[in-house]
Amino acid sequence: TQTTHELTIPNNLIGCIIGRQGANINEIRQMSGAQIKIANPVEGSSGRQVTITGSAASISLAQYLINARLSSE
């Protein structure tokens, strides 16, 4: 079954999640098997909405990979 998880990434950290020309986010997508959508910046908001869709296992793996990127910054 597909589930969806949403999280907010601070604007100053979204770059390390996306990577150069989307390299990091594509790697996270491939490794986790989850669909990951990053919302466009919202004016006045300090973060970007990230939506992860997939199986429970792929979502938790995607979250783990995202958190690993954030903590390495």
Rank of each mutant, 00 (worst) to 15 (best):
I52M: 06
Q21H: 11
S72E: 15
T53W: 06
I9W: 01
A39G: 13
L65E: 07
M31Q: 14
S45N: 11
Y64F: 06
T1P: 08
E43S: 11
N11M: 06
N26A: 12
I59P: 01
E27N: 14
G44K: 06
R69E: 04
S32T: 07
I59T: 12
G22K: 05
I25E: 03
P10G: 03
E73F: 15
S46N: 14
S46C: 11
N40E: 12
A39V: 04
G22V: 02
E27Y: 08
S58Q: 14
Y64P: 05
R20G: 07
A34I: 01
Y64S: 15
G47R: 10
S71E: 12
T53A: 08
A23G: 10
A57M: 07
R29F: 06
P10C: 03
Q2G: 13
N40D: 13
G19T: 02
R48D: 02
T3P: 07
A23K: 14
R69P: 02
T1R: 09
G47A: 12
P41S: 10
S46I: 09
R20S: 09
T1A: 09
S32K: 01
N12K: 12
I52N: 01
T53E: 10
E73Q: 11
S45P: 04
I14G: 00
L13T: 07
L70N: 04
A68E: 15
E73M: 15
T4R: 08
G47P: 03
S46G: 11
N11A: 10
A68C: 15
E6N: 15
G33S: 04
Q2V: 12
N12D: 06
I9R: 02
I52G: 00
L13A: 10
S55G: 06
S71F: 07
E73W: 05
V50H: 02
G33Q: 07
N26C: 07
S60F: 09
Q2S: 13
S45A: 12
V50W: 00
I25D: 00
A62P: 02
A56G: 10
G33N: 04
R20P: 15
I14Q: 02
I9K: 03
C16L: 09
G47F: 08
C16G: 08
N40V: 06
I18D: 04
Q30I: 15
I59Y: 00
Y64C: 15
N40W: 03
L61K: 15
